[in-house]
């Protein structure tokens, strides 16, 4: 009688352990597919706003220089063609191009910094989330069919902004 009770007790324990294991593994195995809108995420990322302000301050001089050079060129447009100084125009165009290139370089560098951090935070989100596949969508209809895709853009925005601010 006693032995039967012990055996029953052990069986119950083993069964409950197996059920716990099953629940644990079931939660661990990621099944779902999710979609995030990359453009919205990028725009709402706090770092993008910070870097945008930084870009404006870094390229303040270049922007003004390009604007004033364009105004000079517009002025040349009003002068008769034979009175125009070709060398002077070429010099202004070259200078404007140089400043524009400088602005583009700064923009590229800052965008690279944003993407480097954003990608890392997205990887961290993926690791902690329940999704097996997160598809980055640009609203261009790149997904032809998905079985119950979940749009998690809002969650991702909150996550990446918290990561950026250092909130764990």
């Amino acid at each position: 009688m006693m032995k039967t009770k012990i055996q029953l007790f052990i069986t119950v324990i083993i069964l409950s352990i197996f059920s716990m294991g099953f629940i644990y593994l079931n939660n661990k195995i990621k099944k779902k597919v999710a979609v995030i809108n990359i453009q919205d995420t990028y725009k709402s990322f706090e770092m993008t706003k910070v870097m945008s302000r930084k870009f404006k301050s870094l390229t303040y001089d270049s922007t003004h220089k390009v604007d004033s050079l364009n105004m000079v060129l517009e002025g040349y447009g009003k002068i008769a063609e034979e009175d125009r100084n070709a060398n002077e125009i070429s010099k202004i165009l070259h200078e404007a191009e140089w400043h524009q290139k400088d602005k583009d370089n700064v923009k590229y560098e800052l965008e690279q910094q944003i993407w480097k951090q954003l990608n890392q935070y997205l990887i961290e989100f993926g690791k902690t989330s329940e999704y097996a596949l997160i598809h980055g969508s640009m609203n261009e209809g790149s997904i032809l069919y998905a079985d119950e895709p979940v749009d998690i853009t809002d969650d991702v925005i909150v996550f990446v902004n918290n990561k950026f601010k250092g909130i764990e």
């Binding site: 770092m47 910070v50 870097m51 800052l110 690279q112 910094q113 480097k116 951090q117 250092g166 909130i167």
Partner: peptide, 12 residues
């Protein structure tokens, strides 16, 4: 952290 190819990093 621009020197390391990154932007501002907050350690909270």
């Amino acid at each position: 952290a621009d020197r390391f190819g990154l932007g501002p990093l907050y350690f909270r």
